[in-house]
Design a binder for these strands. Structure first.
Length: 506
RNA sequence: GCCGCGUUGGUCAAUCGGUUAAGACGCCUCCCUUUCACGGAGGAAUGACGAGUUCGAUUCUCGUACGUGGUACCA
């Protein structure tokens, strides 16, 4: 029988979840859903010194907004493998149990070196021109550990209460080969792998031990994480092997990194393109810094998710706009790229624009209404719905709607100079005054009636320049469809605007 | 420094030894439009470099360069 597919997203609550992390969660989620499996949220809070208040809650809320909802885990309801916080799981004694097992089988050992002693060792080795100083098969003989010390000395140290860590005993010069679903076979020589700390002196496991123990205990079938973990994967393979569980090891998938749009390096917390790096607003209590989110920048969650999914993955055909259901249907790790992808702000905006157009005017109005109210604008829903219809074609963000169509609500005080200097002449005032009168005489005020009036009136009044009408009524050279816009603004307001504009102009 | 991973237009990318090397974003031109957009049609722009394997390499191998990640009692 095939094992039930189970994937986990396992962030550490050391800060806001950035978009790279969201993508990792997304890919895991898509794969789990595609195979009718489980998606678990596990919180890896083993480093109490870096714990940030509010980070865990943020992660949960961010996943919720994105629609990447675990069916099991912190914030989403316990399944059969609770608890889902490593700090709580430590109380179960599971990490200790596995670490003891490794010690008993001779694959791990106790190390009493203080951090000062470790620093000293590294300095000494550097001075001796050793390029990569590390705790390993050759250096451990000169350190304070249960392999170098006599049994007597070790038990004395333990009795005296000396703090110690548990380290993995990595063999010398051995080829470690493992398979990655995205990258294929990867081979590393164990000489490059150091004796990783498994259990810290405070009794907390490190990531290396903890995630393996939990993946085993939680029956995880696929371990998905960022490429930055690739170098430590050999250590993890060794742990599974020494535990006698290599054949049950989850399939590994190391995702390519998301890189900065310009220049080099991976995405940082802020980008000069102005686009957010976080899904929703993030305020770091510890540093006092705030970061804007995609949600608050006027992105829709479906657009954000779609954009992220296509950063490092594609469905194999030309489709770029895919719903969550389609993403689930099409997703596979085989189609994930190996190389890092530069984040493209322009394309990101384009994605949101596509989704903006797909949403109905009523849906958009629901999102836009509160934003208008913040500006002190109260309009009835039918007005806002029509406003959305007229503005959405040119908007990239919901938050742009007001800015893009402020003239719907506020009469102009200045008039686009470029247009006016080019198109306004001594005859204009009389022409547009007459036009105003004609408009004022219109018995009905609809898009069609306005349109017709403009067509009819030209032989009599001469050339009417639409852009001039636009500037007189809105002040700006660009904007929504002219007749539709005039219709929505309303007869009285349009006539007022024209009159006051004409009064100001010569 | 060492080790891992990567390298197709400016960016995202398809191709799984044989193509005029798709498509998308952005950019440019034209068309549509009595305004603004949308839309449509075109255009410029690409296999890092060097060897090898092969009848044939973007595709396989090696080297170089470049990029990126790791090198903690952090994840």
């Amino acid at each position: 029988m095939e094992k039930r597919v189970r994937l986990r997203f396992a962030p550490s609550p050391t800060g806001g979840l950035h978009m790279g992390g969201v993508r990792t969660a997304l890919f895991s989620y898509l794969f789990a859903k595609k195979h009718g499996g489980d998606f678990v949220l596990r919180i890896e809070d083993t480093d109490q010194t870096r714990y940030v208040n509010g980070a865990e809650e943020y992660i949960i809320n961010a996943l919720k907004w994105c629609g990447i909802e675990p069916n099991e885990g912190v914030g989403f309801g316990d399944g059969s493998y609770a608890p889902y916080r490593q700090s709580e799981r430590k109380e179960l004694g599971i990490y200790k149990k596995y670490s003891d097992k490794l010690i008993e089988s001779g694959h791990a050992y106790l190390a009493f070196d203080t951090s000062e002693e470790l620093d000293e060792m590294r300095k000494k080795l550097e001075a001796a021109k050793v390029v990569a100083p590390q705790y390993n098969a050759v250096t451990r003989q000169n350190m304070k550990n249960s392999l170098a010390l006599s049994a007597d000395e070790v038990s004395k140290l333990i009795e005296s209460g000396a703090p110690y860590v548990v380290r993995l005993k990595v063999p010398r010069n051995e080829e470690i080969r493992f398979h990655d679903i995205i990258r294929g076979w990867v081979t590393v020589n164990s000489t490059q792998v150091d004796d990783k700390v498994l259990l810290k002196s405070d009794g907390m496991p490190t990531y290396h031990l903890a995630h393996i123990v939990d993946d085993i205990e939680m029956k995880i079938t696929h371990a998905v994480r960022g490429e930055e973990w690739l170098p430590s994967a050999p250590s993890h393979v060794l742990i599974y092997r020494y535990l006698g569980l290599e054949s049950e090891m989850p399939l590994l998938a190391h995702l390519p990194l998301i890189l900065k749009p310009d220049g080099n390096g991976k995405l940082s917390k802020r980008d000069k393109s102005g686009l957010p790096m976080f899904p929703i607003n993030w305020h770091d209590e510890r540093t006092g810094e705030s970061y804007i989110g995609y949600r608050e920048s006027g992105f829709t969650a479906d657009a954000f998710i779609n954009m992220l999914a296509l950063l490092g993955w594609n469905p194999g055909d030309n489709r770029e706009i895919l719903s969550k259901e389609e993403l689930i249907k099409e997703f596979s790790f085989e189609r994930v790229n190996k190389s890092g992808a530069k984040f493209d702000p322009e394309k990101t905006k384009w994605f949101n624009q596509q989704y903006l157009r797909m949403h109905t005017n009523e849906e958009l109005a629901n999102s836009v209404m509160p934003l208008l109210e913040e500006k002190g604008i109260k309009k009835d829903p039918t007005f806002v719905v029509e406003f959305c219809r007229l503005v959405k074609e040119k908007a990239h963000f919901i938050t742009e709607f007001y800015e893009l169509g402020s003239y719907f609500f506020v009469a102009p005080t200045t008039f686009d100079e470029k247009v006016m200097t080019k198109k306004w002449n001594e005859n204009s005032k009389s022409t547009y005054s007459k036009l105003t009168e004609k408009l004022n005489a219109l018995p009905t005020w609809t898009i069609d009636s306005i349109h017709h009036l403009f067509a009819e009136v030209e032989p009599e009044l001469g050339k009417i320049d639409m852009q001039v009408v636009r500037v007189l009524t809105t002040g700006v050279a660009g904007g929504a469809q002219l007749f539709d816009m005039l219709a929505l603004i309303g007869k009285e307001e349009v006539i007022n605007r024209l009159n006051s504009a004409l009064a100001k102009l010569q």
